[in-house]
Write a protein that binds this DNA or RNA. Structure first.
Length: 475
RNA sequence: GGCGGCAUAGCCAAGCGGCAAGGCAGAGGACUGCAAAUCCUUUAUUCCCCGGUUCGAAUCCGGGUGCCGCCUCCA
């Protein structure tokens, strides 16, 4: 089965064939470090983490790069208002980024380059563009000469005239053409700056990505990704800069994830329409947030509302609950009949893979997990035969195996109490049982209620009272 | 104004020419002293509206309506 991906450049799903046989070079635009992350950033990170994992599952060796933009206007402004240096600001948010990504189960990239560590490469690139007449400098600024790059607009499918009718571009005296964009910005006083052939300044926003992508991955990338809001102008400009220098196709497959919406509008810092990641993660486990982010196809907008994470938690719980039951039922049974993998399970596994092959359709992939869950639950409702034990253990294996691709369903055991605490808890349960035998329900219920308040759940079963700690929905 | 996307049950969300996946919530049932949790069953004669193409359309075409994104920083 072959993987098909939707390419923004061609607006079609295409078979994915990397340049080199079993290697994939992927660059994904990361975040600008001027403020807290929100759910939108989490989506980009999780989506491309899945894409990477799936490519690895397919047997590719993926060289995966995602960057930090650690110098730009907003960072300068933010650092000033907080009274810290720009690098302090960057360090703070980089620390948060990694901590939160770990909670979300996002694997580290092979490299996380930073703009400020690649000034030399940026300057080299600009010099080459100048040599080719694709860039010009005025008063310490350097601009890209859009008119000299005929295919400008090919990614966003606009031509220059169309773009120019978008009235909102401010006229800048220094530019030859309103849509020329800054490659190098002259620095003002008290701003961080680097020496360059054009005087002290700093890189424009788009050039760093070209520089870093080419440094680590070469002149031809297989995949370049990011949020849909980066298509224009950021990625369009990257193409212009990179192909302007190399004359080669910069990127074979442009992949863009849809944006997270809240209250029917894009989630964005500029509008304050934001749910921060730290807030989400303080109420729900990273896996819950991750599940939520995968519940819609990656290219669709994803609607967030106040119930979204609770729903995700409930869904995830259903699967974990099944896994727990299977582990319990099959652990003692050393000899279940090992037969062929039931065809039903094969079919569902195939369906999972077919869904992922079809432009990473995670909602359909997830649905197959739930279908397996349902089949297993049906078996569990009846006395277990050896062959049904085999089926059950195979369901658990499949869910773990396929789940690994999505970075879900991997959690093993629940947290254990230490021995002493467990003994205390058992004593409490014994006493409560006496109350129950004496039908002193109010006292029994009070104990149950108070334990629940500290995160211990009591379940009265026929065979006695079971206790359980740590629920998935907690942070 | 230019470019693009979306409208599927109470909610989230797949499907993109051949009987409408999946999840959450709801309802009914099992279990329980009661709960909670869990499990089972059930929930769209129909996919925004109007036309058309087709043996057959949520899926294709034309025309509406509504919402959203990009065109300025943005995952």
């Amino acid at each position: 089965m072959s993987l098909r991906v939707y390419n923004t450049l061609t607006r079609k799903k295409e078979e994915f064939v990397p340049l080199e046989h079993k290697e994939v070079k992927a660059y994904v635009c990361g975040v600008t470090l001027y403020d807290e992350l929100h759910l939108g950033h989490a989506r980009y990170a999780v989506v491309f983490d899945i894409i990477r994992r799936y490519l690895e599952y397919k047997g590719y060796k993926v060289n995966y790069i995602t960057n930090f933009t650690d110098i730009d206007d907003k960072m300068i402004a933010r650092a000033q208002s907080l009274g810290v240096s720009i690098s302090e600001l960057a360090e703070k948010f980089i620390g948060e980024y990694f901590a939160q990504m770990q909670q979300l189960g996002v694997k580290k990239a092979d490299c996380h380059p930073r703009a400020t560590e690649h000034i030399k490469e940026v300057i080299e690139l600009i010099k080459k563009l100048e040599d080719r007449g694709l860039a010009y400098s005025t008063e310490g600024d350097v601009f890209f000469r859009v008119k000299r790059f005929p295919s400008y607009g090919k990614l966003s499918h606009q031509n220059l005239e169309d773009i120019l009718t978008g009235v909102r571009v401010e006229v800048d005296e220094k530019k030859e053409n309103p849509f020329d964009f800054a490659l190098w910005k002259k620095s003002k006083e008290n701003e961080p700056s680097w020496d360059s052939p054009w005087g002290k300044g700093r890189p424009g926003w788009h050039i760093e990505c070209s520089a870093m992508a080419m440094k680590y991955l070469g002149e031809n990338l297989d995949i370049h990704g990011g949020g849909k809001d980066l298509i224009f102008p950021h990625h369009e400009n990257e193409i212009a800069q990179s192909e302007g220098v190399t004359g080669k196709t910069f990127v074979r497959y442009w992949l863009h994830n849809g944006l997270v919406r809240m209250k029917n509008a894009k989630m964005a810092k500029s509008t304050g329409n934001v749910l921060t990641l730290s807030h989400a993660l303080s109420n729900y486990k990273g896996e819950v947030v991750r599940y939520f982010l995968l519940s819609a196809h990656y290219r669709s907008p994803l609607d967030y509302n106040e119930n979204s994470l609770q729903e995700a938690a409930s869904s995830l719980n259903r699967v974990y609950s099944l896994l727990g039951k299977i582990e319990k039922e099959t652990s003692g049974a050393a000899t279940f009949e090992k037969g062929k993998i039931p065809s039903q399970l094969e079919e569902l596994s195939d369906k999972f893979i077919r869904a992922m092959d079809d432009d990473f359709n995670t909602p359909v992939a997830l649905s197959t997990i739930f279908e397996m869950t349902k089949e297993a639950n049906l078996l569990l409702a009846e006395p277990l035969s050896r062959s049904s034990m085999f089926f059950l253990s195979e369901v658990a294996n499949r869910i773990r195996y396929l789940g690994r691709i999505l970075g879900l369903f991997q959690k093993k055991e629940k947290k254990k109490l230490n021995q002493r605490t467990e003994q205390v808890l058992k004593i409490l349960i014994e006493i409560r049982d006496k109350f129950r035998q004496e039908k002193k329900w109010d006292l029994a219920d009070e104990i149950r209620k108070k334990l629940e308040n500290i995160g211990i759940q009591l379940e009265d079963k026929k065979k006695g009272t079971r206790w359980e700690i740590e629920r998935l929905t907690e942070g």
